[in-house]
Design a protein around this nucleic acid. Sequence first.
DNA 1: TTGACGCATGCCCATATAGGCATACGATGG
DNA 2: CCATCGTATGCCTATATGGGCATGCGTCAA
Lengths: 113, 113
Amino acid sequence: MARAATTSDAFNAIAEPQRRDILVLLRAGERPVTDLAQELGMTQPRASKHLRVLREVGLVRDRKAGKQRLYGLDARGLRPVHEWTGGFERFWNESFDRLDAYVQDLKQAGQEE
Amino acid sequence: MARAATTSDAFNAIAEPQRRDILVLLRAGERPVTDLAQELGMTQPRASKHLRVLREVGLVRDRKAGKQRLYGLDARGLRPVHEWTGGFERFWNESFDRLDAYVQDLKQAGQEE
DNA sequence: TTGACGCATGCCCATATAGGCATACGATGG
DNA sequence: CCATCGTATGCCTATATGGGCATGCGTCAA
């Protein structure tokens, strides 16, 4: 089996850096495809494809505005990701400070020999 | 170009549900591969492969313990993900409540016709 | 030394990208 | 009705997966 579709959920959709960039830009407000493409230095088809993925997982909304199509942020889908990672907060603060200290000790001991 | 490697960063590594499951299990403490595989109902090779990915992005540490190899959580890599998504917090709380109301209005209007 | 146990790997498959390029499509202006 | 602008798609390629299965390898017990 291949990797899960990027459109399967927000976790997969935001795995791609450029899509994250797009989402960040959209925090400033709605924007047409061409705008985004230019600002991020990517071709228009590329931007459209990324936006499609984002739209399919519901991270982005689009609406027609004359000849243009404006894309806007719908960040609700990011909440599950934030909450899931939040479940590990105490672990990145706590236990590994000690572990690091331990590792440092080992290194120093090695260099002193 | 193909999709970025799952080992390129935490964002990619946690896009796979089974790897998230493994991380969750490891919050309870170190565990050998077989244990994890059984608990998650996956084959041993499969678990090993997922653990390898997690190890390569630094979300997991391993240490030998006799015949066994214990895997332990290193959640620090999840922090960037948590913080990045956190940058959208105000958006999923705020603006789209209004947008939803708007959408609901449209739907109702449509059904009443 | 010989087994057995616990894991990591190698190899093969089917699948789904991300990107480039050309092009089809819908709306607007003449 | 036609040309043009703004986008979305189709097609093709190279790549990397996730999974199955068999097997290599290191460690410990007898």
